[in-house]
Simulated scan of single mutants.
Amino acid sequence: MPEPEVREHVLDGARGALAVHEWPHAHPRRVVLVSHGYGEHAGRYAGLAAVLHRHGAAVYAPDHLGHGRSAGERVLIEDFEDVVGDLRTAALFATAAHPGRPVVLVGHSMGGLIAARYAQRYGDDLAALVLSGPVIGGWALPGRLLALDEIPDTPISPGALSRDPAVAAAYAADPLVWHGGMKRPTVEAFARTLDTVARGGDVGALPVLWLHGEADPLVPLPGSRVGVTALSGGRLTERVYPGARHEVFHEENRDEVFADLTGFLDGVCQA
Protein backbone atom coordinates (compact mmCIF):
# COMPACT_ATOMS: atom_id res chain seq x y z
CA MET A 1 0.00 0.00 0.00
CA PRO A 2 1.49 3.40 -0.97
CA GLU A 3 2.45 5.80 1.79
CA PRO A 4 0.08 8.76 2.20
CA GLU A 5 1.05 12.17 0.92
CA VAL A 6 2.66 14.51 3.43
CA ARG A 7 2.52 18.30 3.29
CA GLU A 8 4.33 20.89 5.35
CA HIS A 9 2.80 24.17 6.48
CA VAL A 10 4.50 27.08 8.20
CA LEU A 11 2.35 28.83 10.82
CA ASP A 12 3.05 31.66 13.24
CA GLY A 13 4.28 30.10 16.48
CA ALA A 14 4.83 31.66 19.88
CA ARG A 15 8.50 32.36 19.12
CA GLY A 16 8.72 32.23 15.34
CA ALA A 17 7.95 29.90 12.47
CA LEU A 18 6.07 26.72 13.40
CA ALA A 19 6.47 23.85 10.92
CA VAL A 20 3.41 21.58 10.84
CA HIS A 21 3.33 18.27 8.99
CA GLU A 22 0.00 17.19 7.52
CA TRP A 23 -0.94 13.77 6.20
CA PRO A 24 -4.13 14.89 4.44
CA HIS A 25 -7.32 12.86 4.15
CA ALA A 26 -10.15 13.98 1.87
CA HIS A 27 -12.96 12.65 4.07
CA PRO A 28 -11.57 11.90 7.54
CA ARG A 29 -13.49 10.22 10.33
CA ARG A 30 -11.34 12.08 12.84
CA VAL A 31 -8.42 14.47 13.19
CA VAL A 32 -5.33 13.25 15.05
CA LEU A 33 -2.71 15.62 16.44
CA VAL A 34 0.72 14.16 17.19
CA SER A 35 3.05 15.76 19.76
CA HIS A 36 6.61 14.44 19.37
CA GLY A 37 9.30 13.93 21.97
CA TYR A 38 12.45 15.73 23.08
CA GLY A 39 15.24 16.21 20.55
CA GLU A 40 13.36 14.67 17.62
CA HIS A 41 10.80 15.92 15.10
CA ALA A 42 7.38 15.12 13.67
CA GLY A 43 8.77 13.49 10.54
CA ARG A 44 9.76 10.45 12.62
CA TYR A 45 6.03 9.69 13.02
CA ALA A 46 5.37 8.92 9.36
CA GLY A 47 4.73 5.26 10.21
CA LEU A 48 2.18 6.13 12.87
CA ALA A 49 0.59 8.68 10.55
CA ALA A 50 0.26 6.08 7.78
CA VAL A 51 -1.55 3.69 10.14
CA LEU A 52 -3.89 6.42 11.36
CA HIS A 53 -4.47 7.65 7.81
CA ARG A 54 -5.46 4.15 6.63
CA HIS A 55 -7.83 4.08 9.61
CA GLY A 56 -9.56 7.22 8.42
CA ALA A 57 -7.69 10.09 10.09
CA ALA A 58 -6.28 13.36 8.88
CA VAL A 59 -3.03 13.68 10.83
CA TYR A 60 -1.27 16.90 11.86
CA ALA A 61 2.02 17.10 13.74
CA PRO A 62 4.02 20.24 14.55
CA ASP A 63 7.76 20.35 15.05
CA HIS A 64 7.93 21.85 18.53
CA LEU A 65 9.82 25.05 19.29
CA GLY A 66 13.56 24.45 18.89
CA HIS A 67 12.99 21.15 17.09
CA GLY A 68 12.89 19.93 13.50
CA ARG A 69 12.18 22.69 11.01
CA SER A 70 10.56 25.06 13.51
CA ALA A 71 12.22 28.24 14.78
CA GLY A 72 14.30 28.55 17.90
CA GLU A 73 17.66 27.55 19.33
CA ARG A 74 17.93 23.76 19.18
CA VAL A 75 16.19 21.97 22.09
CA LEU A 76 15.84 25.21 24.03
CA ILE A 77 12.39 25.47 25.65
CA GLU A 78 12.15 28.02 28.42
CA ASP A 79 8.38 27.75 28.95
CA PHE A 80 6.33 24.74 27.90
CA GLU A 81 3.20 26.88 27.91
CA ASP A 82 4.57 28.38 24.67
CA VAL A 83 4.72 24.90 23.17
CA VAL A 84 1.20 24.11 24.35
CA GLY A 85 0.12 27.33 22.63
CA ASP A 86 1.84 26.24 19.41
CA LEU A 87 0.03 22.91 19.59
CA ARG A 88 -3.22 24.84 19.97
CA THR A 89 -2.33 26.82 16.83
CA ALA A 90 -1.83 23.55 14.94
CA ALA A 91 -5.10 22.17 16.33
CA LEU A 92 -7.10 25.20 15.22
CA PHE A 93 -5.50 24.99 11.77
CA ALA A 94 -6.52 21.32 11.53
CA THR A 95 -10.08 21.79 12.78
CA ALA A 96 -10.62 24.72 10.43
CA ALA A 97 -9.92 22.30 7.58
CA HIS A 98 -12.16 19.57 9.06
CA PRO A 99 -14.91 21.21 11.14
CA GLY A 100 -17.02 18.92 13.26
CA ARG A 101 -14.59 15.97 13.21
CA PRO A 102 -13.56 14.56 16.61
CA VAL A 103 -10.01 15.47 17.61
CA VAL A 104 -7.58 12.99 19.20
CA LEU A 105 -4.26 14.07 20.72
CA VAL A 106 -1.32 11.63 20.76
CA GLY A 107 1.73 12.66 22.81
CA HIS A 108 5.01 10.77 23.12
CA SER A 109 7.58 11.30 25.90
CA MET A 110 8.12 15.09 26.22
CA GLY A 111 5.19 15.34 23.84
CA GLY A 112 3.16 13.45 26.42
CA LEU A 113 3.88 16.16 28.98
CA ILE A 114 2.83 18.79 26.43
CA ALA A 115 -0.28 16.77 25.57
CA ALA A 116 -1.21 16.35 29.23
CA ARG A 117 -0.99 20.09 29.79
CA TYR A 118 -2.93 20.72 26.58
CA ALA A 119 -5.68 18.39 27.81
CA GLN A 120 -5.85 20.28 31.10
CA ARG A 121 -6.27 23.56 29.22
CA TYR A 122 -8.32 22.48 26.18
CA GLY A 123 -9.67 19.03 27.03
CA ASP A 124 -13.24 20.00 26.21
CA ASP A 125 -12.19 20.15 22.55
CA LEU A 126 -10.73 16.62 22.55
CA ALA A 127 -12.41 13.27 21.96
CA ALA A 128 -9.49 11.26 23.39
CA LEU A 129 -5.95 11.55 24.73
CA VAL A 130 -3.19 9.01 23.98
CA LEU A 131 0.05 9.08 25.99
CA SER A 132 3.08 7.04 24.87
CA GLY A 133 5.97 6.75 27.33
CA PRO A 134 4.91 10.12 28.75
CA VAL A 135 7.15 12.39 30.81
CA ILE A 136 4.68 12.89 33.64
CA GLY A 137 4.50 12.19 37.35
CA GLY A 138 7.66 11.02 39.08
CA TRP A 139 10.32 11.60 36.42
CA ALA A 140 13.57 11.88 38.37
CA LEU A 141 15.95 13.07 35.64
CA PRO A 142 15.41 16.87 35.96
CA GLY A 143 16.16 16.83 39.67
CA ARG A 144 19.34 14.80 39.16
CA LEU A 145 20.59 17.07 36.38
CA LEU A 146 19.76 20.34 38.15
CA ALA A 147 21.72 19.21 41.20
CA LEU A 148 24.90 19.21 39.10
CA ASP A 149 27.09 22.27 38.65
CA GLU A 150 27.26 21.50 34.94
CA ILE A 151 24.86 19.31 32.95
CA PRO A 152 26.90 16.71 31.04
CA ASP A 153 26.87 16.83 27.25
CA THR A 154 25.42 13.34 27.00
CA PRO A 155 23.04 12.54 24.13
CA ILE A 156 20.17 10.08 24.23
CA SER A 157 21.41 6.57 23.50
CA PRO A 158 19.76 5.38 20.27
CA GLY A 159 19.57 1.86 21.68
CA ALA A 160 17.25 3.05 24.45
CA LEU A 161 14.51 3.75 21.93
CA SER A 162 13.67 0.32 20.54
CA ARG A 163 14.82 -3.28 20.28
CA ASP A 164 14.79 -2.81 16.50
CA PRO A 165 18.40 -1.94 15.48
CA ALA A 166 17.14 -0.18 12.34
CA VAL A 167 15.38 2.39 14.53
CA ALA A 168 18.60 3.18 16.39
CA ALA A 169 20.56 3.46 13.13
CA ALA A 170 18.02 5.80 11.53
CA TYR A 171 17.89 7.97 14.67
CA ALA A 172 21.68 8.24 14.85
CA ALA A 173 21.87 9.28 11.18
CA ASP A 174 18.97 11.77 11.26
CA PRO A 175 20.26 15.35 10.82
CA LEU A 176 17.07 16.82 12.30
CA VAL A 177 17.56 14.92 15.57
CA TRP A 178 19.51 16.66 18.35
CA HIS A 179 22.56 14.58 19.18
CA GLY A 180 23.85 16.59 22.14
CA GLY A 181 23.06 17.05 25.82
CA MET A 182 20.19 18.80 27.53
CA LYS A 183 20.25 22.56 28.19
CA ARG A 184 19.69 23.83 31.72
CA PRO A 185 16.76 26.18 30.88
CA THR A 186 14.96 23.28 29.21
CA VAL A 187 15.55 21.00 32.20
CA GLU A 188 14.26 23.75 34.49
CA ALA A 189 11.17 24.10 32.29
CA PHE A 190 10.60 20.33 32.48
CA ALA A 191 10.69 20.50 36.28
CA ARG A 192 8.24 23.41 36.43
CA THR A 193 5.82 21.82 33.97
CA LEU A 194 5.86 18.46 35.74
CA ASP A 195 4.77 20.37 38.84
CA THR A 196 2.19 22.39 36.90
CA VAL A 197 0.59 19.25 35.47
CA ALA A 198 0.66 17.54 38.87
CA ARG A 199 -1.24 20.49 40.36
CA GLY A 200 -3.46 21.04 37.30
CA GLY A 201 -6.14 18.49 38.08
CA ASP A 202 -7.50 15.57 36.11
CA VAL A 203 -9.06 15.59 32.65
CA GLY A 204 -12.50 14.51 33.78
CA ALA A 205 -14.41 12.22 31.45
CA LEU A 206 -11.87 12.46 28.62
CA PRO A 207 -10.89 8.90 27.58
CA VAL A 208 -7.16 8.29 28.05
CA LEU A 209 -5.01 5.52 26.53
CA TRP A 210 -1.60 5.00 28.15
CA LEU A 211 1.01 3.02 26.19
CA HIS A 212 4.38 2.21 27.79
CA GLY A 213 7.33 -0.09 27.28
CA GLU A 214 7.93 -2.20 30.37
CA ALA A 215 11.71 -1.87 29.86
CA ASP A 216 11.73 1.86 29.05
CA PRO A 217 15.11 3.15 30.33
CA LEU A 218 14.47 6.83 29.57
CA VAL A 219 11.07 7.35 31.19
CA PRO A 220 10.65 4.50 33.69
CA LEU A 221 7.16 3.11 33.91
CA PRO A 222 6.55 3.49 37.69
CA GLY A 223 7.03 7.26 37.66
CA SER A 224 4.73 7.69 34.67
CA ARG A 225 2.07 5.58 36.34
CA VAL A 226 1.83 8.09 39.18
CA GLY A 227 1.25 10.96 36.76
CA VAL A 228 -1.10 9.17 34.39
CA THR A 229 -3.26 7.89 37.23
CA ALA A 230 -3.60 11.41 38.65
CA LEU A 231 -4.30 12.95 35.25
CA SER A 232 -6.97 10.46 34.25
CA GLY A 233 -10.44 11.19 35.45
CA GLY A 234 -11.24 7.48 35.55
CA ARG A 235 -11.56 6.54 31.87
CA LEU A 236 -8.04 5.08 31.61
CA THR A 237 -7.01 2.25 29.31
CA GLU A 238 -3.51 0.91 29.98
CA ARG A 239 -1.23 -1.14 27.72
CA VAL A 240 2.22 -2.10 29.00
CA TYR A 241 4.42 -4.07 26.57
CA PRO A 242 6.87 -6.58 28.10
CA GLY A 243 10.45 -6.00 26.99
CA ALA A 244 9.62 -2.88 24.99
CA ARG A 245 11.78 0.21 25.35
CA HIS A 246 10.91 3.91 25.03
CA GLU A 247 9.36 4.29 21.57
CA VAL A 248 6.54 1.78 21.38
CA PHE A 249 5.43 3.12 17.97
CA HIS A 250 8.88 2.08 16.66
CA GLU A 251 9.21 -1.16 18.62
CA GLU A 252 9.46 -4.70 17.25
CA ASN A 253 5.84 -5.26 18.31
CA ARG A 254 4.60 -2.02 16.71
CA ASP A 255 1.78 -3.84 14.89
CA GLU A 256 0.36 -4.86 18.28
CA VAL A 257 0.69 -1.28 19.51
CA PHE A 258 -1.04 0.11 16.42
CA ALA A 259 -3.88 -2.41 16.79
CA ASP A 260 -4.36 -1.38 20.42
CA LEU A 261 -4.40 2.29 19.38
CA THR A 262 -6.88 1.97 16.54
CA GLY A 263 -9.10 -0.34 18.59
CA PHE A 264 -9.18 2.23 21.37
CA LEU A 265 -10.06 5.02 18.95
CA ASP A 266 -12.89 2.99 17.44
CA GLY A 267 -14.26 2.41 20.93
CA VAL A 268 -14.23 6.02 22.11
CA CYS A 269 -15.02 8.09 19.01
CA GLN A 270 -17.43 6.56 16.57
CA ALA A 271 -17.36 9.27 13.89
Rank of each mutant, 00 (worst) to 15 (best):
P2V: 08
E3L: 14
E3F: 14
P4C: 06
P4Y: 10
E5H: 12
E5I: 04
V6E: 15
R7L: 15
E8W: 15
E8N: 12
H9T: 02
H9F: 14
V10T: 14
D12L: 11
A14E: 13
R15G: 03
A17K: 06
A19G: 08
A19N: 11
H21F: 14
H21L: 15
H21W: 15
A26L: 14
P28I: 05
V31H: 11
V34N: 06
S35F: 12
G43I: 00
R44P: 15
R44W: 10
A46R: 03
G47F: 13
G47R: 01
A49N: 02
A50T: 05
V51Q: 13
L52E: 05
Y60D: 07
A61H: 06
R69E: 04
V75W: 07
E78T: 08
E81T: 05
E81Y: 08
D82L: 11
V84H: 06
V84Q: 07
D86H: 06
D86F: 09
D86E: 10
L87E: 14
F93V: 01
F93K: 04
T95V: 12
A96P: 08
A97Y: 09
G100C: 06
G107H: 07
S109K: 00
A116L: 12
Y118A: 05
A119F: 09
Q120R: 04
Q120F: 08
Y122W: 14
G123E: 09
D124R: 14
A127D: 02
A128T: 01
V135W: 09
G137Y: 13
W139S: 03
L141A: 15
P142Y: 09
L145P: 03
A147Y: 15
L148H: 12
E150S: 11
T154Q: 15
P158N: 00
S162M: 04
D164N: 04
A166K: 10
V167G: 05
A168L: 07
A170G: 07
Y171V: 00
A173E: 14
D174A: 00
D174L: 05
L176G: 02
W178R: 01
H179K: 00
G181M: 03
G181F: 09
R184I: 02
R184Y: 13
R184L: 07
T186E: 12
V187Y: 11
V187F: 13
F190L: 13
L194K: 01
D202V: 04
P207N: 05
V208D: 11
W210Q: 07
H212V: 00
H212C: 05
G213C: 07
L218C: 11
P220D: 01
G223P: 03
V226P: 11
V228T: 00
T229S: 13
A230H: 14
L231G: 10
L236M: 08
E238W: 12
P242G: 08
A244K: 02
A244I: 02
H246Y: 09
E247P: 02
H250P: 06
N253M: 13
R254I: 03
V257I: 04
L261E: 12
L265C: 04
G267K: 03
Q270C: 08
